[in-house]
């Protein structure tokens, strides 16, 4: 069986911010969302000139060099599920390799994928980290260019199958940080599962596109307020970064 190559934005042998422990991270190229607050906007277009292609076998060679120090492998983006056949093939290969099979496999995703994509990935993936850019569909559309119906479905779908590692909330001041929105988001997540791990990330200007660089950064006070709203709703596993 030949495996699917990937359009690659970058590879990082050690990352401490993309899932549990020290992880090898593959950043795929191309994302169906066009988030104003994206801090890696160069990874959004699917086929920019000079895109690097890499095979699963080539990545395995790189992963083997880093393996002794790793807890796992994460595919991030861009959007990982936009190239889900590659993700499936990579994780399948990691699990088939005697030296690599101890590594955990995680996907960092915007959640904008159909159940059949999750079904393809679930057998080879230990955890999914899903972004929820906004609970309100209109706000979500303003922030990302698309609605959030699929995202909410995906979060529920992955949670039901015990593979939702965390939900990530990116707080963008003036867009999704009102008390009312925070409260409703908190209630929705608490209704899903009070134990779900929620990571609150404050918006920072670093890396974002020029037209968005006037947006104020999230303050520690905003993060504290968000944390309080989430915990008031009964969520017991909230982390702010």
């Amino acid at each position: 069986m030949s495996s699917t190559p990937v359009r690659l934005a970058d590879v990082v042998p050690f990352s401490w911010v993309d899932g549990p422990g020290n992880r090898f991270v593959v950043f795929t190229q191309g994302c169906p969302f066009d988030c104003l607050a994206c801090h890696n906007p160069e990874t959004i277009p699917p086929h920019p000139p000079g895109t690097r292609h890499q095979t699963v076998a080539g990545l395995l060679t790189e992963i083997r060099l880093a393996e002794p120090y790793l807890q796992g492998v994460t595919v991030s983006g861009g959007e990982a599920t936009a190239q889900w056949r590659f993700v499936r093939d990579l994780f399948r290969a990691v699990r088939a390799d005697p030296r690599l099979r101890r590594l955990t496999t995680y996907v960092d995703t915007n959640g904008h994928a159909l159940p059949r994509v999750w079904d393809a990935l679930l057998p080879v993936t230990d955890g999914f980290m899903v972004d929820l850019k906004a609970l309100d569909p209109d706000v979500h559309r303003r922030l990302t260019g698309r609605g959030n119906g699929l995202v909410l479905d995906s979060i529920r779908y992955l949670h039901d199958r015990n593979r939702l590692a965390e939900v990530r909330l990116l707080l963008v001041p003036g867009h999704n940080d009102s008390a009312d929105q925070l409260e409703r988001t908190a209630a929705w997540l608490a209704a899903l599962d009070p134990e779900v791990r929620v990571v609150v990330i404050g918006f920072r200007r670093h890396g974002v596109r020029l037209e968005f660089s006037g947006t104020p950064e999230a303050t520690p006070e905003l993060l504290a307020r968000a944390r309080e709203a989430l915990e008031d709703a009964g969520l017991r596993n909230v982390v702010t970064v």
């Binding site: 549990p20 020290n22 120090y69």
Partner: peptide, 16 residues
């Protein structure tokens, strides 16, 4: 970034 992920340091120590 280490501070937020001490587990990653444990991984590196074990690997080392």
């Amino acid at each position: 970034t280490t501070r937020r992920n001490p587990e990653a340091v444990v991984d590196v120590i074990r690997g080392a």
